[in-house]
Design a binder for these strands. Structure first.
Lengths: 217, 217
DNA sequence: TGACAATTAAAACAATTGTTTGAATTATGT
DNA sequence: ACATAATTCAAACAATTGTTTTAATTGTCA
C-alpha cells in the first residue's frame, strides 16, 4: 500500500517533471517538445513520463493545470482591494494583477507563454483552460465594468469594453517579440514600470468608459 | 535556357506549394507541418518542395513574404481616406482596415494566423516580418495618434496609446478560440459586424485620448 | 525529329519521435 | 530480515520526419 510519509518530497520526480515540462512546453510548444529534453531537464529517465503520467499529452494537460494553480495562487485576481471598494479601484487592481502575471519573472514565467500557445495552437486542454481559468477572469472583469458603466454584465457594451481592457493587458503576452523589437522601453522590467503600465491602461480605459456611460442614453 | 511564355501558369506548382503551405503552416505551425501534407494539398510530389525551394525552412520564409504581399495588396493601411482628412477619420479607417485583415475570410484567411504564430514561436523570418510589415504599420498609427494628441510621435504617451489601440484589434487574432467560446456573438461574421467592431474600438480609443490630451499639461 | 534541360515521380535514406519492455534498484510494511 | 510493491534504468521498438537519389516524363529549341 502507498503511504504518505513526507508530502514535501512525495512524488519528487513527478514535480520535477511538471516543472521541466512547463519550461520546455513554453519554449518550443507541445509537439516540438521532446520527452527526452523534458526528462533530461528534470534529471529523470526517459521512461519517467510514461510511468508517472501515462503519455506526453496527459503530462501536458497536468502541466497546464499545475501552472494555473501556481499563478493564481501567487497573484490573486484582485490585489489588496476590499469587496466594497469603488469599481475604479477594483479595475486598477485587476489590471495590475493581470499584468503581474503577464510579466512574471520568477521560476514560473513560462506559464503565460503556455497560455498564449494554447490560444494559437489549441489542444485538448483548451476547453478546461477556458472554463476553469479564463471564464472566471472575464466574469470578474465584467462585474467591475458592469458597475462602472451601470449596465448589466450581459450588455453588449460591457462585453466590448471587457475585451478592450483585457486585450491591452494580454497584448504584451502575445506580441512580446514585436514590442521588444519596436518599443524596447515600453517593456516593463521591474515592479515600478509594471505599475506604470497598469496606470496607463487603467487611465486610458476609465477615460473611454466615462465617456461611454455619459453618452449612452 | 528558361523562357517565359505564360507568366500566368509559370511556376504553377511553385505557387500551388506556396498556397498549400500557407494553409498548412497556419493550421499546425512550422514544425508540425509535414512536407507530405503540404505536397498532397498542392497536388505535387514529395520532392517538389526540395526541388523548388531547397528545403522546408526556405519555403516557410517565402510563404510569409508571399502572404505579406497579398494581404496589404488587398487591404491597404488606410481605406479611402485622403491625406488631408481629420486624424479621427484616419484612425477609424486604420482600425477598420486592420480588422478587415484580421477577419479576412477569403482564400488568404490563413495569413493572419501565420503572423500570430510567428509572435508565439519566432523563426528566422521574424525580423524581416517586423521590419517590413509591422514597423510600417505602427509608424502609420503613431503618426495618426501623434496628430490627435498633438504630441510628437516619439512621446511615451503616444507610444502607449498606439499599443492600446493596436492591441484591441489584434486581440481577435491572438485569442480567437477564447473569444469564440466566451462571447460567440462578439466575433464578427460579415462586413457590417466588422464595421461595428471598428466603430466600438474607434469610439473607445478616441474617448480615452480626448481625455488624455485634455488632462496632460 | 532529336538532343538537352527542366520537371515530376517513386523509392529509399538516415535521423528523430513517443512508447514499451524487462531487469535492476529502492522503498515500505510486517 | 524478508517479501512485496514502487520506482528507476538502459535498451529496443515501430512510426514518422525531412531529405536524397535515380529514373521517368515533359517541354523546348536547333
Amino acid at each position: 500500500m502507498k503511504v504518505v510519509p513526507d508530502p514535501e518530497n512525495q512524488d519528487a520526480t513527478r514535480n520535477q517533471l511538471l516543472e521541466a515540462a512547463g519550461e520546455v512546453f513554453a519554449e518550443v510548444g507541445f509537439r516540438n517538445a521532446t520527452v527526452r529534453a523534458i526528462c533530461q531537464r528534470a534529471g529523470a529517465n526517459i521512461a519517467a513520463i510514461n510511468y508517472h503520467f501515462g503519455d506526453k499529452e496527459t503530462l501536458y494537460i497536468e502541466v497546464l493545470r499545475y501552472a494555473h494553480g501556481k499563478a493564481l495562487e501567487k497573484h490573486p485576481l484582485l490585489l489588496d482591494v476590499p469587496e466594497t471598494a469603488a469599481p475604479e479601484k477594483k479595475l486598477r487592481a485587476f489590471i495590475h494583477s493581470l499584468l503581474l502575471r503577464v510579466f512574471e519573472k520568477g521560476s514560473h514565467s513560462w506559464h503565460g507563454r503556455l497560455m498564449s500557445r494554447e490560444m494559437i495552437e489549441p489542444t485538448v486542454a483548451l476547453d478546461a483552460l477556458i472554463e476553469e481559468r479564463i471564464r472566471p477572469t472575464h466574469t470578474a472583469l465584467a462585474t467591475i465594468i458592469s458597475e462602472i458603466l451601470k449596465r448589466p454584465a450581459s450588455d453588449d457594451c460591457v462585453i466590448l469594453c471587457v475585451s478592450s481592457v483585457f486585450s491591452q493587458c494580454v497584448f504584451y503576452n502575445h506580441c512580446r517579440p514585436a514590442v521588444v523589437k519596436l518599443f524596447p522601453k515600453l517593456v516593463p522590467h521591474d515592479a515600478a514600470s509594471i505599475e506604470n503600465l497598469a496606470a496607463h491602461i487603467t487611465k486610458f480605459s476609465l477615460a473611454a468608459m466615462k465617456d461611454f456611460s455619459a453618452n449612452i442614453k
